[in-house]
Every structure is written in C-alpha cells, then in structure tokens.
Design a protein around this nucleic acid. Structure first.
Lengths: 334, 334
DNA sequence: AGAATAAATCGAAACGTTTTAATTATCGGT
DNA sequence: ACCGATAATTAAAACGTTTCGATTTATTCT
C-alpha cells in the first residue's frame, strides 16, 4: 500500500537535474533530446516510480484519446466479439476504450454519455444500440460509427453492416429447399435498420416460393435482455398456436431458447422442426444438435469501426458491408 | 457534429453575469448559493450546453472516483454477472467503472494498469484474475479487492469468495448417492485459491466414500479462453481413456462442451454419464438436458466488492463468504 | 577561428476546474 | 436605523502537464 507517493514531473526534473520541459519531452518520446540526458531522466523516472498524471496531460493537450463502445448487453457474445476487435486496435494505439453497457436504460445511457463527454471522448461506436435523437445530438466534436444496427437519423453516420437481407433470404430458401413449409421468424421489434433488412430477406424468400410470410413473425418483447429465455417464450407461443416445421431466429441465443421449447413439446430437431440461428456462437456450435447459423466476422467488424473512428477510412461516409457466412450444421433437416 | 463548442465554465459565468466560483458551486450542488442565482446559472448552463471538463476537475480535486473491474474474459457470463453488480452500484454513486479485459495477457495487463494508475483509479476489483506480484505492487494509494479467485499474496487483500469446498463436496456426494462410481473432475490449472478449494471438496467426498480421486482430474490447458471448446477437448480425452459415469466441471461452459463430447461418443446424459456444472448460466439452464449446477449470487458478489472498495465494509479485512445454491436439474441420473 | 546553422534545453504561459480565504450583501434584533 | 452576525459571492492560487518561443550549447562550413 505504501505512502502518499504523488511523484510529479517536477520531482523527476529535480532528481535528474534537468528542466520540467525536458522530462516531458523524454516521456513523450521526442527525438530532440540528447541520449545522455534521456538516460538520466529515465533513470530518475524509474527510481521515483513516476507515473504521468493523465488528467493534467489531457487537460493541457485539450483531449485524450478515448473511444467508447456502447453496447446494450455484456451477456451477448455478439457484441463482445465486436468490442474485442475494437479494443485490440485501441490498445495497440494507446487509445483507451471505455465499454458502456446501457441495458437500454435511458438513465444509464444519459449518465454514461455524460461521463464520456466529460472526458472528451473522441470516438463513439454504437453497437446494436438505438439511441435517442436528443441524446445523440448532444455529442459534438467527435466521430461516431454505428455497428450493425442503427438509430433514428443514422444515415448521417458511417455504419458497418452485414449483408442482412441476403442472409435471411439464404436461410429461408435453404429451409424451403429442404421441404419446410411453415417457417416462422423470431426477432425482436425491428426498430433498427439491420433487423428491418433481415425481416425483408425472410419475407422475400417466402413470397418467391409462393408461401405466405406475413403472419409468421414472432416478436419478442422490447428490452428483453435474457435472450435465451425470450427465445424460449416466443417459440413456445408459436408452438402453442400452430405447427411450424422451421424456425429462423435473429440470434443464436433466441434459437437456443427455441430449441429447448421445441424439445419440451416432445418434438424432434431437425426431424419435426428445423432451426437456424444467427451469430455463430460457441453455444450454438456445441449444442445438440449443433446449430446451423451465420458466422459474422465480429472481430473484423470491430476493427472496421475502429478504422472509422481513427480516421483511416475517412471520406467513405457510408455503409460498409461485411459478409456473413452460412454455417450448415445439424439443426436443419437433411 | 457542429462546431468547436468547447464551452467552459468561464463562458457560463459570463453569460450568467456571475463569477466562475459561483458557477462551480452551482454545478457541484452546493447549498450556499441563492436560489435566484442558481436559476440564472442553470439557465446559462442549459443554453450553452456546458459540460464540465472532467480532466480539469479531477486534476484540481486530486482524484476522480474511478473504479476498475479487471477480468480475464468478457465472454464468460460468470464475470459479467459480477461486473454488473459492481457497475450498478458505481453508477448509482457517480463513480466510473472501467472494465478491463486482460485475456491473461501480460502486456494487456500492463498497459491497462498503467492507464488506470494514470487516472488515479482508487479501487480495483480483480475478478478471477491472477496478477503478477510485480504488477500488483505498483498499485499504490488505492483499495483492492479480489473476487472469488486470488493472486499470490492475496491474503493482504479482502476477498469475496464462495463456499467452494462445500459446493464440490456436495456435488460429488450427490453423484455418489445416485450410484456414480467413476467421477471425473474438469478444472483449469488450480493456481488460484478458489479452485484449490473446489478440488479439495471433490477429493474429500471421494475419499469419504472410499473412492479414489487422485487420478480423476482433468486439467484443461492454461490460458484457454474458449471454454466450451476446452470442456469438449478435456471430456473427449477422458472418454477416450476410461469410462466415467460422471463428470463434474468448474464451469457450466466446461460442462456444456463436455456434454457435447459425451453425446458424440454415442452416450446418453444422464443415463450413461451424469454431469454437473458451476455458475448457473442461462446456457446450462436451457440445454437439453438442463444442467445441474450451482447458482452463485453474482450480482450480490459484485455489490460486495463495491462495498469493500467504497469503504463500507472497512475494517473487515478478510474473506467474505457467500453461499452458492445447488440447482438440481436433469443432467444427473435419478 | 569565427560566423552561420543545427541541436538541445529551458522558462513560462496555458489548459479548465475547485477551493480557500477574503469581500460584499442581507437579515434580525434592538 | 444601526450593529453584529450570517449568507452569498468572489478573486486568486493551485492542480500537473504540454508546448511555444527563446536561449543556450554543440556542430558544421568557409
């Protein structure tokens, strides 16, 4: 625990018999300081265990490089993958990444955003987050990128998106090709652009095959964080009113809940009902039967978000599409 | 996006026709300012969209209340639950919680810790993290608490622990009572105190029952982050060399991997082999068969960690035990 | 060797707050 | 209507850096 260290740059300067400015130069790795003095300073720093005060530095510099990853839920492996890509690049560049879990709670969003603005956060990655316009508008002097999902006036900001429409289209036609006729779709309320697209892909495929998809959507309730449970509830509700032979879910987590619901009804997967998820989680992969799903390049998506925030992709203000791979496993009938 | 706002306290003071100090007083919610002036200031703040600069404030105040949650892996629901309890309390108190994911990577640990010291982090919660002595020693002027697991000289710091020994003992005797005889235990390397205790509980139960437990441990490799896969690999290796009738795992995630391995061998759960996990994750709950496991008061544990850091539990420097509940479901034979 | 140039170092001013101590305004009691 | 006390306000110093421009020291070129 030790004492009240509080070693400042001044102490170092004193010990190294050199000016404060020189120490600062050394610390920031400037080249215009003689090797000999640098050594002296470094030695002093080492001995005194000097740690630069971030607050003072950032205050003077006018900003610190802080990026924020705003996600709804730490429990969703989907978000975590993206965050990981973001974080790796951040630490590589000495940028601090602050992770904000909002739980879709307005109060939390507000306080987190307040803090983030206070520390002059220069880059915000909103991941699967729908933010109040009012809240978004308070963000000034910074870069914003939206990953996969999207808030109200999102078109003002760059987005990294997956080929949503194509995925659900492919999944649905795949099921149809295996003989499924009564295909239901489990999704949260589609207030977001990405989810809208997914729904659209699903419907198009049904329509093309001459099947009716209008009623075959089951929306889980808003703000539901316990996703597996939500999937269970939604699937149960479907099963109680009809006899589907296929379920398509916008998340592996929904799918896992759904599979359990199917089993609880005494039905078999995939013989009686086929299931397809989304995200290629470890959970789906090791479930029994293993889950057919889409694999998203999550880490890469996080990296792309970083590149936007970091100005590497500067002028390309627009959507950046990323491909999801269809992973065929055991949960759809042969 | 807008311009270069950069509204400072000075601007507010100017607009409200009042001194800088008064604005500061208002912002910090002091009572010694007249209602009339307060209104004026508040109006100015509102109009100018003033956001206090955290850096300046913290620099002046000497510290900001920042706590850190250091965890190895964001993908483990176990850690996330604890973090959530911690975070809730933090935001309630206006304390910022910085989440550090280390992936057990020394370099990451070092840079994260460096940043955290720079922002004068006053409380560190190490969750499931084994930190280098050298690294820990650099932490000064702050509170430290260790949750569930423990590093080298941990006894200097308070810990919140679960009743590990009791859990594994109970799980093992339970399996024995159901007729299991060849019970294996899947655990990561037991460098940590908590895991040591768990192993001990398992061994005691076996010994008491006159069974040999010495060889019946399967250690997954170090630093393995993909826990389900690790469980799968370890269980496969067990199954290839012997014919266990029960598997006990230190995490639901290991157990899920193990269950899949068992199935892949053509064996049934629980008829051929029983499985018990740890942590009571959603995944285990909805798996088929649902997983018998231990439910930990994760959120409460996070809250307790907070209380230590916040000084609420001040003098009690020691271990704080928390009970885990045995959740009996379908994965153990009747 | 001396002037001109380059390299290394330094002093001091800022960055935007909080806080202490001092100043000014307000109030209750006579 | 005045005094003392209390409430409200303020000026100015400090927090620990970075950075600009200036100064000193070393190097190069004639």
């Amino acid at each position: 625990m030790s004492g009240f260290s509080k070693v400042t740059i001044k102490d170092v300067a004193l010990k190294a018999e050199v000016s404060v400015s020189t120490v600062s130069l050394v610390v920031s790795g400037s080249t215009r300081v003689a090797a000999k003095t640098r050594r002296k300073v470094l030695a002093a720093i080492d001995e005194l265990e000097y740690i630069p005060n971030e607050y003072a530095a950032s205050l003077r510099k006018g900003k610190r490089d802080v990026f924020a990853a705003v996600i709804p839920d730490l429990n969703n492996p989907y978000y975590i993958g993206i965050v990981r890509g973001l974080r790796e690049r951040c630490t590589k560049q000495g940028i601090v990444l602050h992770i904000s879990e909002t739980l879709h709670d307005y109060e939390v969003e507000k306080t987190e955003l307040r803090f983030l603005r206070g520390v002059q956060t220069s880059g915000y990655a909103f991941i699967g987050t729908v933010l109040d316009d009012e809240l978004i508008e308070t963000l000034t002097n910074c870069k914003i990128v939206s990953v996969d999902k999207v808030y109200g006036f999102a078109d003002q900001y760059p987005q990294v998106l997956i080929n949503n429409r194509h995925c659900t289209y492919e999944a649905t036609t795949y099921m149809i090709s295996k003989g499924c006729k009564n295909i239901w779709y489990i999704t949260p309320p589609t207030r977001t652009f990405g989810l809208e697209e997914r729904l659209d892909g699903y419907r198009s495929a049904l329509k093309e095959a001459g099947l009716d998809g209008e009623g075959h959507v089951c929306v889980s309730y808003d703000g539901q964080m316990n996703m597996i449970e939500a999937g269970y509830i939604q699937a149960s509700s479907i099963l109680s009113k009809t006899k589907p032979d296929a379920l398509l879910a916008t998340s592996d987590l929904y799918a896992i809940g759904a599979m359990r619901a199917i089993r609880d009804k005494g039905l078999r997967i995939p013989e009686d009902v086929s299931v397809i998820g989304f995200d290629n989680t470890e959970y789906g992969r090791y479930y029994q039967p293993s889950l057919t799903t889409f694999s998203l390049p999550l880490v890469r998506m996080g990296e792309m978000a970083f590149e936007f925030l970091n100005g590497d992709l500067d002028n390309k203000i627009g959507k950046l599409r990323v491909n999801a791979d269809f992973i065929i496993r055991e949960s759809v009938r042969k």
